[in-house]
């Protein structure tokens, strides 16, 4: 039986992130909260969604910068854990995500008698950032699952980020570009569902790339 061929090819794009500093910094959790209420949404996005782009090969302690700062720099493990569980894809938009982070910190501070802060000389302040993300066509176009699988082994992990995280986080799509294409073009809903369960906030982008290849291989073996 011949392999399903897509009517519309999948065009792999990748990206390059140029980080930009906002000149705002927080030395304690109250300051973190106050800045969080004011910073541009791009900054919320940078410290949550695109954290995985900066941990593409080696995942950090927590999948977002707020949790990592609380746990490592302030040594407030409780707040680190509470923020670490946040999955950015569970929120309808960035304002909802901002509201969740702010209320979580506010609730945490309400239970404490003093505001946790970095110890002078033993912790780094939180530096608020945002970034310019340049989307770049790779020139790689595929029509079959085998071509898709082979392309995944050669593209850079920025492409995984773009089609998995930016597609949902910035472009507001319901699911990743990979899952959507496999479902709509190759008519492989089971594979699409498996791909849709891959979470870039629990695994590194390199792990996800490997997992995508494995899922495609398994589907090809079954065909």
């Amino acid at each position: 039986m011949s392999e399903p061929t897509a009517r519309t090819a999948f065009h792999f794009h990748t990206c390059w992130e140029l980080p930009e500093m906002l000149g705002r910094r927080a030395f304690d959790e109250r300051e973190l909260l106050e800045h969080l209420e004011e910073v541009p949404l791009d900054s919320i996005y940078f410290h949550t969604h695109s954290s995985c782009l900066r941990q593409r090969g080696v995942p950090g302690v927590y999948p977002n910068d707020f949790a990592t700062w609380a746990a490592i720099q302030v040594r407030d493990r409780v707040l680190g854990e509470k923020l670490g569980i946040i999955d950015p894809h569970e929120y309808a938009d960035l304002e909802s995500l901002r509201a969740e982070v702010v209320s979580l910190i506010d609730d945490h501070l309400a239970q404490l008698r003093s505001v946790p802060r970095i110890m002078f000389g033993f912790g780094e302040p939180f530096y608020f950032m945002q970034s310019r993300v340049l989307e770049i066509p790779t020139g790689v176009k595929v029509r079959t699952l085998r071509e898709f699988r082979d392309a995944l082994t050669t593209i850079d992990s920025g492409a995984v980020y773009l089609h998995l995280v930016e597609a949902r986080g910035r472009k507001g799509r319901r699911r990743s570009d990979f899952a959507a294409w496999v479902d709509e073009q190759l008519k492989l809903p089971d594979l699409a569902a498996r791909m849709g369960r891959l979470n870039p906030f629990q695994q590194s982008l390199e792990d996800i790339r490997r997992r995508l290849v494995t899922l495609a291989d398994e589907a090809l073996d079954r065909a």
């Binding site: 593409r56 340049l134 770049i136 790779t138 593209i155 850079d156 992990s157």
Partner: peptide
């Protein structure tokens, strides 16, 4: 370099 980097840099440089 990480896989795909050289191609990515060439594409980026087109800008």
């Amino acid at each position: 370099a990480p896989p795909g980097t050289v191609e990515l840099l060439r594409r980026l440089s087109e800008r």
